[in-house]
Design a protein around this nucleic acid. Structure first.
Lengths: 187, 187
DNA sequence: GGTTGCATGTAAATGGTTACATGATTGT
DNA sequence: ACAATCATGTAACCATTTACATGCAACC
């Protein structure tokens, strides 16, 4: 899904500026399966406007820069819902963290411990955050956005559990590697 | 992590051709957190050779095209292990599947059911595959590659469980949306 | 006085996917 | 006869990231 279509996805839930869309991608319910920085969002919105998929209203503000509020058009909705009815294909998961752990045998145990501890802390923060969003109840309960958000919580809890369970095993294998390297370079 | 570095990661486990590296990315233990097609792997290997990070031996074969077997050099190893000791950053997860489910309220329930069922089947196949690889025991037990592979299994099992649990909820919310649209366009 | 938040955008560089191009062999 | 596997590679295209550029207001 390209940035243009994910922006349309945000706009179908309500009008927004480029700045607000980006916040959705960073923190909102879209955060864990979509993304985009200013450098991709602003050009995408400009292009979408040219193609008649969104309209744009400039709104002056005092003590704040002017806003450009984008709204989705029927054409934009059609494009979005068509895009959502083609095969979604596989999820893309890229993890430098797992790539690093794969080579734990060759790396300092202290480094492995450091990145695992950091990751555990990050997962805990994300879970806490998502759970407080739930309490605020901005989405109606049992609507699909709420369900997807709950899936996000489940996902992070599962990851946290996996990492916490295996932490000591990774450190142990890294330590074994360190010792093997010390005791002469016997391959 | 760029393709060049992930290729070095495959090569540090043993010599390989571009073709074999790609298979690792598609099926091997790297599959669920790294990737790359021919169009990125071959240029990356050529570049790595120029930079002295790998060496290349051409090997003729009868009844098969000639192979180019790549081997990592000490310089390549240094580059890899240095790359593995900088902050891995966040995992990147992109899911058109979840993006679609987010809008289940606006989509045909039959389509939602179809993609969920398909996804469930895919997860089951992946879990089965990874578990048979475990039985073959190509990695030494308790080494980090094995641990990462087990994390992959845990990950897919968690995802399967989440999707199976929420399947009927998504279909229910999609059906509610369908009915609402039928009963006149009352917003 | 420095950082964060609001708010927009461009340009260059990076990096990756897709499609094309070739061709023999093995299995169904 | 057709598809899949082995095996390499290029070129055009596409998309995204990063860095740059601006500027005021509020908060610490």
């Amino acid at each position: 899904m390209d940035v243009k279509t994910t922006c349309l996805g945000v706009l179908v839930m309500g009008d927004a500026t480029g700045y607000e869309i980006r916040k959705e991608f960073e923190n909102g319910p879209f955060a864990h399966f979509a993304n985009g920085g200013y450098g991709s969002i602003y050009p995408a919105l400009t292009k979408a406007e040219k193609e008649g998929m969104v309209t744009c209203k400039k709104q002056e503000q005092d003590k704040r820069p002017a806003k450009k509020i984008y709204a989705i058009t029927p054409k934009g909705q059609k494009h979005l819902f068509n895009s959502l009815q083609i095969d979604p294909g596989e999820d893309k998961f890229r993890s430098n963290f797992l790539f690093t752990l794969y080579f734990a045998d060759f790396l300092p145990a202290s480094w492995i411990e450091e990145i695992i501890d950091k990751r555990i802390a990050e997962y805990k923060i994300k879970i806490e955050y998502l759970e407080t969003v739930n309490e605020n109840g901005e989405c109606q309960p049992d609507g699909s956005p709420m369900l997807v958000k709950d899936m996000g919580i489940q996902y992070y809890k599962a990851m946290l559990n996996i990492v916490e369970t295996d932490k000591h095993k990774f450190i142990a294998t890294a330590l074994r590697g360190e010792n093997a390297r010390k005791e002469g370079q016997c391959s």
